[in-house]
Amino acid sequence: MSVSAVSISQFSLPKAFQVEDHFTAISKPIWRWRRQGCPASRFRCGKREAWKMKATNMGKNYYELLGVSVDSNAQKIKQAYRNLQKKYHPDVAGQEGHEYTLKLNEAYKVLMRENLRKEYDASIGEMRGNYSSSSLGRTSSWNGPLRPQGLFVDENACIGCRECVHHASSTFIFDEALGCARVKLQYGDDEQKIEVSVDSCPVNCIHWVENEELPVLEFLIQPQPKEGFGIFGGGWERPANVFMAAKSFNKQTHNENHGRNSRASTVEEEETPAQAKARADASRKINMEAASGLFSRFWQWQNKPFWGEKEE
């Protein structure tokens, strides 16, 4: 009986079955807040429509729905579930919360039962294989409901001033080994603290990025072992411009998925982390050529966004 709400939408039923609308309704206040709160960070990797479209897919990933990381224990999942229920249960939010709560209940049921969770993990394993599992502990987890955007620290730019950790200690941690700050827990502090911490960064290396970009960025920013030749090279490196790298990474993933879908009957190939890395390295090289100075490139980026930003 693994039939879910997806099949229901095939029956053109009344409005109760449109997940996207609820998602956007939920995310709106946060959008507004971000705009007002951080006028400085003007760049965005996407637009609202893209988010909305993505939301339908988001509903499928129970971890994202509950706003927990894939390695969360039962206790964390329970807590996240309760917190979300408190906000969106129809008793609190009215009839609009119905559809969302249904999803929550389903997600909770699956993730709380060990066997169902294993099965589910296997079914979404492809996604995790790409970036998350290889980097456990280095990616940020979520506090509270899923929101359209998350924080990302460009560790290349970070000068290790610890200002952000000082202002929002639950959200940021300082990586002593690498000498830079990183997001540990999205929305770990209240909104004001986060706002202050973002503004406090002297090199403006804390960015608001679209949710769907976040895992890619977090994967790419990690130093990867570099193959050495004799006594030359070796050590660790990461893309000089992680945003560019993410862009081409996504493009490739998209192309690949597209190709995969067109060959509908063929068995889905899972991309190994090694392949993902290879792709990332390739895109990184392209970027390296195009780039000269970190900051100049960066400003360019901010002034001329790539994903067709719409001025609203």
Binding site: A5, I8, T101, L102, N105, Y108, K109
Partner: peptide, 8 residues
Amino acid sequence: TMPAQKDL
């Protein structure tokens, strides 16, 4: 758990 939606 309510709300619930199931099909068969």
